[in-house]
Design a protein around this nucleic acid. Structure first.
Lengths: 197, 197
DNA sequence: CGCCTATTGGTGATGTGTCAACTAAACGCT
DNA sequence: AGCGTTTAGTTGACACATCACCAATAGGCG
């Protein structure tokens, strides 16, 4: 689709990426990495769990009955089912969660928290929120936060746009503020309720 | 270190993270993920390689003699040595790179490109740069690019600051523009020369 | 009912990433 | 030369992530 990329000559130069741009790209990637590392480290120190483990535990913690079907977890945190399965297996072996059969659907299982799992999520949540605030929100002013949101939406838009961009780009300028019904953009990445821990 | 976090009462509220903030955080994380996925997909389609493979290949391609010592690769792309070793082993098995002994240092080895490796990096580089431009740089205006850089630096600053932030924060405002001699912030993440492919 | 398809979840293989422990060569110092 | 320390690189164990495939049940429809 969108075969007319060659419009407006000089396409070959369009590709050129300046030194300045690469600096942005590199710094951005470095930031991502360091941020992940710091978060991971905090979880490890405060609760002895990894980020993936925390995501599962938090999803379960927030569930009304403190238990969820595999499929529900997958939808909530945006993973694919086999990843859930593997992760839950490891966590079951570690004693953080437990699987129990589901009466109403013989195919299904409930994933629930064990006491250790409860302890872990309680121990991690508050300090996790503190860490995220310290490293991310406190480092940026209100204007920059807006910018992060806007930039993220723009990039997300450019990804699922059909790549024939000019039109899409304009459309995006138009909608701008209102959140996009984007495929996976709505994924809730952990947290939300970490503060009420 | 920095035990005086409790200064300026209401600390418990300082931790609270608003719904708006979580939206920013989620969207930011979603963007990161989708971006990675898109880049990975492009490399896979255009050259049948993964991003880690591309990083190694590109480092070698850019090297004066098209070969590097393991340690040099590690410094260039900011990985630890064992990761290099594992990755090179896999790539050697796939025929993308080759290891040869090093005369001047009997402990060391040279990692060089095979013909297949050359083909792969040539096939990937140009389109990689195009993709990054399409998804990232073209989606943002100049002001936003500046913002990405500034925001990344701020967050990086907050990470390696001793966490006792107010002073560090100010110090950072002061230096602001000049790049920080930060630990790993100087990592060059792939690319640079993708355009001369 | 009996068949067909979709859904739920698991498995194994492979690749990625980190950590700790290891070998061996190089280096530095007396 | 001898000896402890650094440095280069590997290895094995483990966790994470994705893919392709599989088994069993659920649910619809004749």
């Amino acid at each position: 689709m969108c075969q007319l990329n060659a419009r407006m000559g000089g396409m070959s130069e369009v590709a050129a990426i300046s030194e300045r741009e690469w600096e942005v790209w590199r710094t951005f990637y470095g930031m991502r990495r360091q941020l992940d590392r710091a978060i991971e480290q905090q979880l490890q120190e405060d609760a002895g769990i990894s980020r993936p483990e925390f995501e599962i535990l938090l999803a379960l913690w927030e569930a009304p009955q403190k238990r969820l079907r595999s499929r529900e977890i997958a939808e909530l945190i945006g993973w694919e089912k086999s990843r859930i399965s593997h992760q839950v297996s490891r966590m079951e072996a570690r004693g953080l969660v437990e699987r129990t059969e589901c009466d109403s659907d013989l195919r299904g299982i409930w994933v629930g928290l064990t006491p250790d799992g409860r302890r872990a999520v309680l121990g991690a949540s508050r300090k996790h929120a503190l860490k995220v605030r310290e490293l991310f929100f406190d480092a940026l002013d209100a204007e920059q936060l807006d910018a992060v949101l806007e930039i993220s939406k723009r990039v997300l838009g450019s990804i699922d746009a059909p790549a024939c961009d000019i039109v899409a780009q304009q459309a995006q300028h138009a909608q701008d503020g209102n959140s996009e019904g984007n495929s996976e953009a709505e994924r809730r990445d952990s947290n939300e309720a970490a503060q009420r821990a």
